[in-house]
Design a protein around this nucleic acid. Structure first.
Lengths: 149, 149
DNA sequence: GCTTGTTAGTTACAAAAACAACCATTACCA
DNA sequence: TGGTAATGGTTGTTTTTGTAACTAACAAGC
């Protein structure tokens, strides 16, 4: 009986497939924020968190977006230099800093959000809405975003 | 009529979700090749390509794995230093170099393949086999891996 | 056969990420 | 109330990546 050597299919290995799909879609969408605003991936993520959820702290974004705090710290620095974000120390706890978008930040957010919606619609267009719903459900579970998020 | 400001759901945006799921699953699987063999992501990818497809050239891996050639070049360097991979110049075309696993490389591959199979089975276990099939189909299409691969 | 172009792969340098150590402030608790 | 731990956030250093330029070998046109 031969060793079942060739049964493993790399192109069906979920972590591999997930990465290929993620990279492809990220690279395509990246053009929007990179070319038009010179932003990095972490920067648009911070921008979008503040844009969709309103005022947050850096730690809040860390938890929600699952990004390390040093990356957030530097992204906030950049966004604040560009006057897209303002920081305000809390009075109750002087360690924490509230972040929110400036009008310029809001404008950039709205612009990029339109891009995002268009791009997402294009991706979804390849499938039925039932398939998309299932895909989202599965991705959320794989990401561990079922309950918390 | 108010601006539909809050209709965009970041947590449903496909590139974002794909990245979250990809990162989560990659990080978990990473432990296997990182802790046990001190490998980087590109290195296990090269190892797995050579393990599952047999002898290949660097360019062949680039095309199949969609990784830039500089990354492949460095990964091959590392793997060859560790005696997991041997390189052999082609006689027909002295630019090309055939890569294949050494016995030690094969052993590492088989070991990590087992890990991969177990981990993949664990991921798949959260869903029905029909759901998994659909997920794979969708991810391949999103990755642009429909025809070529 | 000699310019021009292409392909396989490497190297050098700049940008970004990971990791650890670090303040400052607040919480715990004996 | 004073010492220890935990938390929010930043900074510094090392790895890893991205980008461009490079060498070497081949291919094609003329």
């Amino acid at each position: 009986m031969p060793k079942k050597d060739s049964e493993f299919a790399l192109q069906d290995f979920l972590p591999y497939l997930l990465n290929q799909a993620a990279e492809e879609s990220s690279l395509a969408f990246q053009k929007a924020y990179k070319n038009r605003y010179g932003m990095l991936r972490t920067e648009w993520r911070v921008l979008f968190h503040l844009g969709t959820y309103g005022q947050m702290t850096a730690t809040g974004i860390c938890d929600k977006a699952r990004i390390h705090k040093t990356k957030i710290s530097r992204a906030v620095q950049k966004l604040s230099e560009r006057r897209f974000v303002v920081r305000a120390r809390s009075d109750e706890d002087r360690r924490v800093e509230y972040l929110k978008l400036t009008p310029a930040g809001e404008a950039a957010y709205r612009d990029l959000r339109t891009e995002a919606e268009d791009y997402d619609a294009r991706l979804r267009g390849q499938f039925t809405s039932g398939e998309v719903a299932l895909l989202r459900m599965m991705l959320k579970r794989l990401a561990g975003l079922d309950a918390a998020g």
